[in-house]
Each structure stands twice: as structure tokens, then as C-alpha cells.
Amino acid sequence: MTDFRYDTVSSTPGPEGVRIIALNRPESLNAMNRALIDDVARAFDDANADPATRAIVFTGTGKAFCAGDDRKAHVHPETEEEARAMVLAIQRATHAITLGAKPVVGAINGWAVGGGFEWAINCDFPIWADSARGFFPEVSLNLFVTGAVTTLLPALVGLNKAREMLMFGDRYSARELAEIGLAWKVVPDDDLMATATETAVRLAALPVLSVRAMKRVLNHAAVPDLHRALQLETDATVAGFLDPETTRRLKAF
């Protein structure tokens, strides 16, 4: 299996056709800066193109899966061109995870916040550690969500619950997310990677053609407006970035 190297993401061969992609900025709880966003997209593109990779485990190194936007390293876009380039980079990562050929097992540890929560939802089989937590702070920051969650989330939990989660930004435990169908499984923290890897090995053992077709058809049939959602989210997020109120709220967060 090919070995790929990135600055902020590790991509290592696992057992029996499994690749493990791990966010690797543990000192910042794997918060998202531009380098990490670009590395996630590249890592998934490379894994999807690698014939030896048949299933992917996506996780975070250290105490968190992904704590959302890196406030310390945040560079606020000053022009529409800069804002759109940033948001399109985020959406490219979503596209590689959600619409890529290989099934993705999420191993969600610690906090999954904002864009990190979006990436957890993008996984085909999201397995959450018992202590993990997730929430969307975007609306409170005068921003908007990405990751196609405006269509994925209602499909998974229903429109009313999606409104609650996205507008109020409440914090949810892994058990609560399992009850509403957002976490596929919840396991003890110490069992997270073993369970995720075992699930990926099961997927990797299945016929490649049928697994890829099933992922593709299920996603397009269940969420037919996914591409449209990505476009609308991009426009709304760009507008949020360009509003001076957003900068004030980000600094106060």
C-alpha cells in the first residue's frame, strides 16, 4: 500500500486494505487551519485513488477529533475572492470524504466542533467514543456551516432537530447523538480505534465494485441535493466572512 505524507495529517496503511487518516495537530486539538484543510482533501483524494486502499478510518490524534476553526491561526478573509477560496477548500475536503469511492469509518474522539463536527457527519460509519462531544457554533459567530450538513443533517435526524442543532448550537454527548441517529455506534474510549479498524476491515473484505456502487447510490438517492447544498453553503459562508460583525464575534469566542 502506498505511503503518503502531509504536514498536518498522517496517512498510514492499516491492516488488510485499510488506510488510517488522522488529523495531526494535537497541540491545537486538531483545529482547522488552511494547511490542515488542504491536507485532508489531498489525503482522501490519494486514498480514493490508491488501488490497495479499500476502506478508510478517519480520526484525530490526541485528545480531540477536531476543535473547529483555529482561532489563534485564523486569517480572516478581506475580499470575496479570499473568502471564496477558503470555503471552496473546505468543500473540496467534504467532496473527497462524502463522494469519494472508498467507504469511510469515523473514529470520533474528544471534541468535534463546527467543521470538525461536519467531517464526522461526512463519514459513512461514524463511531463515537463515549466521552466525545459535538456542536455547531457557526450561527452564534455570524457564520454558516459547510460540509453539506444543511442537507445531510435533516436527512439523518429530521428537519426539526437539524434546525435545533444548527441554530442554537447546543452541545451534544455521543449518547445523545446515537439516540437521534447521528452516531452509528458509541463505544468505550479505549475501544474506539479497535472498533473502527475492525469495521473498516469488514468493509475492505467486501467486493470493491459493489461497495463503491452502494456508497455512491445511497448518497445520491438519500441526499439528491448534496451538490446544490454545497453551493448554497459556500455563498452563505462567504457572506458571513465578509461581515465585520463576524470578526468581532470570532475574537470574543
Rank of each mutant, 00 (worst) to 15 (best):
W184A: 14
L206K: 08
F117D: 02
R202K: 13
G147M: 13
D225E: 13
V139H: 13
L159Y: 05
F144W: 15
L143M: 15
M214E: 15
S173T: 15
A221E: 08
G115R: 06
R133N: 13
A222F: 06
A107Y: 01
T197N: 08
L206F: 01
E179W: 05
Y172N: 08
V139E: 14
F144L: 05
N122E: 13
V105Q: 02
V113H: 02
R216V: 01
E176H: 06
N160D: 15
A204N: 08
A196F: 12
V157P: 09
A183R: 01
T150L: 11
K161S: 12
E118P: 00
R171K: 10
D190E: 12
G106W: 02
K102I: 00
M214G: 12
D130C: 03
L141F: 09
W184T: 13
I180M: 14
M193A: 05
K185G: 01
S140I: 01
N142A: 14
A205I: 01
A178M: 09
E176V: 00
N219K: 12
A120E: 06
L182E: 07
T151Q: 14
C123A: 15
A200T: 04
L166A: 03
R175K: 14
T199A: 14
I127T: 07
Y172R: 14
G115Q: 10
G169H: 07
F117H: 04
L226H: 04
G106S: 03
R163Y: 12
G158V: 08
E198F: 05
L182P: 04
H227E: 01
F168N: 10
L209H: 11
R202V: 03
L159H: 08
K102E: 00
L203C: 07
A120T: 05
I180E: 06
F135V: 05
A183I: 02
L153W: 06
F136D: 14
S140E: 12
A112R: 09
L159F: 04
L203I: 05
T151C: 15
A178D: 05
V145G: 11
A213N: 02
F125L: 11
V186H: 07
R163W: 09
F168A: 09
